[in-house]
């Protein structure tokens, strides 16, 4: 298994500064998820690690060795692309064996490894088909198979589930996690979906506008977000922000997760219900408190519906405070 270090990576595209001094240390065998909104630079960082982009400044080390001047083929990694990038003129078997052929392995060995991976991903019956004859989910499996078959110590995933429907995405998420447990390879996984990030990653790196905002376990990120952006990006439904004066700071904000609020007769805050959304297992209640919007989760529907005055109780232990000007967490 491979460890990866990114040291002060900067990347410019013309006038645009895409990656801003990013340093990361990914442990051997770790599943690290790079997450952030579109255009934050997460795919660029992944492609820089893969060798498909060169950093303007900084270094990439795999197993302690600088690889920044090496071609992608010399880095000993495999990659699953967002659009799968399957070779359209080759069968599934040939797609899987493409990299092994280039390594010059004997055909018997190639066939055996292709068969092994095909069984693992349950695509044995598709080996003679061309990519155009496969469904989205099947193509995705072949793309994963092509990365697994070379048995590299480092596998990169670039938003591999973004083209799948919700049900298939959930199933593949589970399977990718399982594959990580089986292979033990180091995985760097890019997504803009925070649910994917929190369910898959051993650790999550949150990026925003080319800056690494926080890297920590999903639980730490959710419970102790470094700043306002991380707090708002991770968590569904989104965290509530209310302005106020806290810790002697005139310009501050308090962040309250929706599950930290509940409607109680003895609540401290008075609110007006604006709308209620039924989400199956619970309701998402939209309320207004002193003119500020607030969302919270309730197991039950609020009787007598909208415009009703209710009292809310907040779990004070779960409040997050942020500086309004910088967005930094106030401890």
């Amino acid at each position: 298994m491979a460890s990866v270090q990114c040291s002060h990576i900067n990347k410019d595209f013309g006038q645009h500064h895409i990656l801003k001094d990013i340093s990361l240390d990914i442990k051997s065998g770790e599943f690290l998820v790079l997450v952030g909104p579109s255009g934050c630079g997460k795919s660029t960082l992944l492609r820089t690690i893969a060798g498909l982009e060169s950093p303007t400044q900084g270094d990439v080390l795999i197993d302690g060795k600088s690889v920044v001047h090496l071609q992608p083929r010399q880095r000993g990694l495999s990659m699953v692309f967002q659009n799968y990038a399957l070779y359209p003129h080759l069968s599934v078997h040939q797609n899987l064996g493409f990299g092994l052929n280039l390594q010059g392995l004997p055909q018997v060995e190639i066939n055996s490894r292709v068969k092994e991976v095909a069984e693992l991903l349950q695509i044995q019956h598709l080996l003679d088909r061309r990519p155009k004859d496969l469904s989205g989910g099947q193509r995705q499996r072949v793309a994963v198979g092509r990365a697994l078959v070379r048995k590299t110590d480092l596998i990169l995933f670039d938003e591999p589930l973004s083209n799948l429907d919700a049900a298939l995405r959930s199933q593949m998420r589970f399977e990718i996690k399982k594959l990580h447990q089986i292979t033990g390879s180091t995985i760097i996984y890019v997504t803009h979906d925070q649910v994917e990030a929190t369910t898959l990653g051993d650790r999550i790196a949150v990026l925003n506008q080319g800056v690494l905002e926080q890297i920590a376990t999903p639980c730490q990120i959710y419970s102790y977000p470094n700043n306002r952006f991380v707090a708002s990006f991770i968590g569904t439904p989104e965290i509530n922000f209310l302005p106020g004066k806290f810790f002697g700071r005139p310009e501050a904000e308090v962040g309250i997760r929706p599950e930290a609020i509940c409607a109680k007769e003895d609540g401290q805050l008075e609110a007006v219900v604006e709308m209620q959304e039924y989400l199956g297992s619970h309701y998402l209640i939209h309320a207004r408190i002193n003119g500020f919007a607030l969302r919270f989760i309730s197991e039950h529907c609020i009787p007598e519906g909208n415009n009703r005055q209710i009292k809310l109780k907040v779990d004070m232990a779960k409040l997050h405070f942020f500086d309004k000007a910088t967005g930094a967490r106030i401890s």
Partner: peptide, 22 residues
């Protein structure tokens, strides 16, 4: 799509091999 050649390059081919093989 450029990703086809990139996939070939990650899979172990040179740029020229990617051109000829893909």
């Amino acid at each position: 799509p450029k990703s086809l050649e990139e996939a070939a390059q990650v899979d172990g081919s040179t740029r020229l091999q990617a051109f000829f093989k893909v």
